[in-house]
Write a protein that binds this DNA or RNA. Structure first.
Length: 563
RNA sequence: CGGGGCGUAGCGCAGCCUGGUAGCGCAUCUGCUUUGGGAGCAGAGGGCCGGAGGUUCGAAUCCUCUCGCCCCGACCA
């Protein structure tokens, strides 16, 4: 490709609304342009990178035995009504009507469509297992789209759905997909971890998220420094702490704490530490109000709370309900003499001579001991933190941030049952198909690659994703010798790789800056001075290494740099 | 959905408080000079100041409504 013919509008400054590096660099490198909130156009350079991600995904999915299909973006409401999600999914589902006033939605995911197809076409266990995937545009009307391609409303996703006669078959396919995903992200040149994740209401023993490690990641993951255990912080198991420390035996005492509501205020006022405070949160659930206790320096985890209480949903109680349950305004709740069910994190059991709210305005209690002064059901209720002990070994947790680029999980029979997707087994008995589903955010993967591979000057593409493998940069196209050498090298390389020839009549500095910005792995610079010696310069974007080689050897040297 | 902020040339911004008919840098176009890390000089083009309504002799500027965008939170699994 000739730079002079390419729509590649680079920017010196990043747009003011760009927040994360990948978004800034994709804008500046002329890869994407925003059309509306969370909706982008991919320009030629951006599309090339995204196509590379897609190519790798296709190759590995096909290799893993999956078959590509293409399902519609516009989906009739009936299918979603059948699965029950038309009412459940909420406002993220963009709904629309056609000219006959029939209802449709833009597909945010395709379980319904694929299940509908399979129930029509698959009759026998002989046709199973089956894994169907597509790479296609999805729409989710996110409340707050941000970070460019990382969290758009319209985005390209690879979604795969597998269908099985037995749970064992699903397990095998899950493993198969796990390996395929590992290969995909390895080939993309990404540093990632597969972590255990929440499955939500969907079931299955566990699911795995594939996280690209990056500061800007929206998810926090806890990983063991010693063993392979890694989990989304929402799910990471926190071990029950060791033996209790002996209590002083002093009786509970009421202390006045006028206007002190937060852990920070109270602990400062009472000259103690947050670790010695029992944070008491009142939650409203479908089973009534409950109290949840965690140590003052810990964070409650609502997923864990939900699981422990067996509730369908939990949410922090309103002011009035707190007043009703505790007899005090928010900020003075405590477990002592509380009449609603109490769930406490293991860490609370460890507190002796602790501090907590007195269920009375402007008052707290001290010398509180869990075992003596109140009764609670103990469980793992908090978010994991750095330094927590690993549940699997003697190591401790590190907390890292990650970008979720892939997610695999076992669906079970949620959709097949609701929609009547069945097959006949060996005995001619009708049974419900068991399903798995496997997603990859395509644009997000490209963005994540930039988050992980850039420097001050711009993008540093991992070679497999690079829009071009090599860039040929004649310093001065008006110089006949330079131009001829560049054209010749361009033609030679072009038969073997994707080459960008910067044939623009621009100053050298401009061309160098653009080259660094768009981050092509190898750059061949052809200038008059070196050319007189029969030499050209090869620069590797990642290492910055520069070497002079014979013009005749240039093509070979480029390939050497790329290998 | 709650709170905050911003819409002025392709991009980044000033002007608004204190009304007088729009400006800076970058980009674009022309010419000359320059040519290995975002050149210099000279000249040029480009804006219904997000939209509608109001106040006023006069509105980018003040008021009301509206649309869009951004940030924080809640939401989402």
């Amino acid at each position: 490709m000739r730079y002079s013919k390419m729509l590649l509008p680079t920017l010196k400054e990043s747009p003011s609304d760009a927040e994360v590096v990948s978004q800034k660099l994709m804008m500046r490198a002329g890869m994407i342009r925003k059309v509306a909130a969370g909706i982008y156009t991919l320009l030629p350079l951006g599309l090339r990178a995204v196509r590379n991600v897609e190519r790798i995904i296709r190759e590995e999915m096909n290799r893993a035995g999956a078959q590509e299909v293409s399902m519609p973006v516009v989906i009739p409401a009936e299918l979603w009504q059948e699965s029950g999600r038309w009412d459940e999914y909420g406002k993220e589902l963009l709904r629309l009507r056609d000219r006959h006033d029939r209802e449709f939605c833009l597909g945010p995911t395709h379980e319904e469509v694929v299940t509908d197809m399979v129930r029509r076409e698959v009759r026998s266990y002989r046709e199973l297992p089956l894994n169907l995937y597509q790479i296609q545009t999805k729409f989710r009307d996110e409340i707050r789209p941000r970070f460019g391609l990382m969290r758009g409303r319209e985005f390209v996703m690879k979604d795969a759905y597998s269908f099985h006669a037995t749970a064992e078959s699903l397990d095998a396919e899950y493993e198969n997909m796990y390996r395929a995903y590992t290969r995909i992200f390895e080939r993309c040149g990404l540093a990632f971890r597969a972590v255990e994740a929440e499955t939500g209401a969907i079931g299955g023993r566990f699911s795995h998220e594939f996280m690209v490690l990056a500061e800007s990641g929206e998810d926090a993951i806890a990983s063991c420094a010693k063993c392979a255990y890694a989990a989304n912080i929402e799910r990471a198991e926190v071990r029950e702490p060791e033996a209790l420390k002996p209590a002083s035996g002093q009786a509970v005492e009421r202390v006045s704490t006028p206007g002190m509501k937060t852990i920070e205020e109270v602990s400062a006022f009472l000259k103690t530490r947050p670790e010695l405070m029992i944070k008491t949160l009142i939650y409203e659930t479908d089973k009534g109000l409950v109290a949840a206790l965690v140590r003052g320096d810990h964070q409650i985890n609502e997923f864990k709370l939900k699981k422990v209480t067996g509730a369908q949903w939990v949410k922090l109680a309103e002011e009035a309900q707190v007043q009703k349950a505790t007899g005090a305004p928010v900020g003075f709740a405590g477990p002592v003499k509380l009449s609603i069910p109490i769930y406490a994190d293991f860490g609370v059991r460890n507190i002796s001579d602790g501090f907590t709210g007195a269920n009375e305005l402007d008052a707290h209690l001290k010398h509180v001991n869990a075992s003596r002064d109140f009764h609670a059901a103990y469980a793992d209720l908090r978010n994991a933190e750095a330094g927590d002990r690993c549940p699997r070994c003697e190591g401790t947790f590190e907390i890292k941030r990650g970008i979720e680029v892939g997610h695999i999980f076992k669906l079970g029979t949620k959709y097949s049952e609701a929609m009547g997707a069945t097959f006949l087994d060996e005995e001619g008995k009708e049974r419900v198909i068991t399903m798995g589903c496997y997603g990859i955010g395509v644009g997000r993967t490209a963005a994540a690659a930039i988050e992980q591979n850039h420097d001050e000057a711009g993008i540093i593409w991992p070679r497999p994703l690079a829009p071009f493998d090599c860039m040929v940069l004649p310093v001065n196209v008006k110089d006949e010798e330079t131009r001829k050498a560049a054209e010749a090298l361009y033609d030679e390389l072009r038969s073997e790789m994707e080459v960008l020839l910067d044939d623009r009549d621009e100053r050298a500095g401009v061309k160098f800056k653009d080259a660094d910005l768009i981050g092509i792995p190898v750059r061949v610079t052809i200038g008059e001075r070196n050319l007189k010696q029969g030499k050209v310069e090869i620069k590797e974007r990642r290492s910055g290494d520069v070497r002079l080689v014979d013009l005749k050897e240039a093509a070979v040297e480029v390939k050497k740099s790329l290998s």
